[in-house]
Design a binder for these strands. Structure first.
Length: 422
RNA sequence: GGAGAGGUGGCCGAGUGGUUGAAGGCGCACGCUUGGAAAGCGUGUUUACGUUAACGCGUAACGAGGGUUCGAAUCCCUCCUUCUCCGCCA
């Protein structure tokens, strides 16, 4: 959510940004609705003040034994108008708020301008792509050939976009989770959280999934939603709280399964594990002071990258352009891992600085050194998407006979050096 | 699921339907006092919106949302949540 005051004071900037981000709401509409709101508040405040002072008189008169009837009649009429104005005023406030809730965040000045992913910019690359003496296979082929990945039975149990991992592959997924959590907590300074996987609508509004993107979520009959990412419960940890400035920044990591309806992605990544209704992820979240969030974004991105480096998986980091960023982000780096089977880079992490966008929605604040209330800045990034990391391990560590070498960092927890057909 | 008791400021804790944004205490900040500290004394100590050059002023907020009333922290209804007891249960 944007600050209406900022919009009023920076109308040209706002107009340009709204266009770049494809906002359905215009600056002019915001100004109009806000003016209406102010006018109604003024009317209400004045009338309510009159009502209050005269009501007090009634109390006084009665105490003194004077006749209060004339005032009572007068105030009776005021009361009706006050009630009406009160409704109108809160309606106007809600209208403004719901407009503000639909507007995407303003891009940071360092973000490249562009309408789609073709305008994204490579920030850096890491690692050496392996040369294969044979034709590299895709992960689903490798998994099914090993007999360790079963999509058909998963479809029977649930439907399409689900998978069953068997034996060594189930263990590999678990080893990756454990490995990522270990690195993020022990080396990169994150505190681990275990959170609810079902959350309420307020929580999803805080991080920006609601009200605009309800169709992407699974909703239960009791009104709970399955979380689409741990960003949701973790970022909302301090919702409606004033946090101590001295404790900032907070760094949290959390492993959770994630659930996405994938409505509107028919025909996209139908095969394999890339796009599932349910997948595992270790998420990184930082909550910072305003002036520290961009340094924190670099750190958080590096922390996510460190997992790929330790697994020796080649990747590149992309700076997303204005048109390719998520709703709440002011700046985003995507980390893309190299998949030799697919012969392309695929997103494995998305690290964003949301600035005060979520802080304002969540109403999470701190008192700065001047005693002024400020909204926190929030950041999140995958550290990493576990299923896609498993894909990357399969494809990058495959051997000609279809077996998979286990990355050195995982050999201890896997208890083996190679995954072979059982 | 059943029965009962609660939810008030950073914390604890008063509150009779009428100058209660809210007693008192603790904490915190500043000042006085002191050789220095503690104690003591004094002053101050929520946020949002509106208004103002500024000091201020106005309005709202006592879990949330409705209602009764000229007037609600106080009365009524619904919901959320915490605690105790019973039942069920991994």
């Amino acid at each position: 959510m944007l600050d209406i005051k900022w919009v009023l004071e920076n109308q040209d900037h706002a107009k340009k940004a709204f266009e770049q981000r494809g906002s359905a709401v215009s600056v002019d509409e915001l100004i109009r609705v806000n003016d209406e709101r102010k006018e109604l508040q003024l009317q209400f405040d004045e009338l309510r003040a009159e009502q209050k002072s005269k009501s007090k008189l009634i109390g006084q008169y009665k105490k003194e034994g004077k006749d209060a009837q004339p005032i009572l009649d007068e105030v009776n009429q005021i009361a009706d108008k006050v009630k009406e104005l009160n409704h109108k005023q809160s309606e106007a406030e809600n209208t403004l708020k719901s407009l503000l809730h639909q507007i995407p965040n303003i891009p940071h000045e360092s973000v490249p301008v562009g309408s789609d992913e073709s305008a994204n910019v490579v920030a850096r690359s890491w690692g050496q792509k392996r040369e294969f003496a044979f034709k590299a296979k895709e992960h689903w082929e490798l998994g099914e050939d090993l007999g360790l990945l079963d999509f058909e039975r998963a479809a029977k149990l649930a439907g399409s976009r689900f998978a069953i991992y068997r034996g060594a592959l189930a263990k590999l997924e678990r080893a990756l989770i454990q490995f990522m959590l270990r690195v993020q907590t022990e080396e990169n300074g994150y505190e681990e959280l275990m959170t609810p996987y079902l959350v309420n609508a307020d929580t999803l509004t805080g991080t920006g999934q609601l009200p605009k993107f309800e169709e992407d979520l699974f909703k239960t009959t009791s009104g709970y939603y399955l979380i689409p990412t741990a960003e949701v419960p973790v970022t909302n940890f301090y919702r409606d709280e004033v946090v101590n400035e001295k404790e900032l920044p907070y760094s949290f990591c959390a492993y959770t399964p994630c659930f996405r309806s994938e409505a509107g992605s028919y025909g996209k990544d139908i095969k394999g594990l890339i796009r599932q209704h349910q997948f595992n992820k270790v998420e990184l979240v930082k909550i910072t002071k305003q002036e520290e969030s961009y340094a924190a974004l670099e750190k958080l991105t590096n922390d996510a990258e460190s997992i790929l480096q330790k697994l020796n998986l080649p990747y590149r980091v992309m700076t997303l352009c204005t048109g390719d960023m998520g709703f709440g982000a002011a700046k985003t780096y995507d980390i893309e891992v190299w998949l030799p089977g697919q012969n392309q880079y695929r997103e494995i992490s998305s690290c964003s600085n949301c600035e005060a966008f979520q802080g304002r929605r969540m109403n999470t604040r701190y008192k700065d050194s001047n005693g002024k209330m400020q909204f926190v800045h929030t950041l999140n990034g995958s550290g990493l998407a576990v299923g896609r990391t498993l894909i990357a391990v399969l494809e990058n560590y495959q051997q000609e006979d279809g077996s998979i070498l286990v990355p050195e960092a995982l050999q201890h927890s896997m208890g083996c050096e190679v995954i072979k057909k059982p």
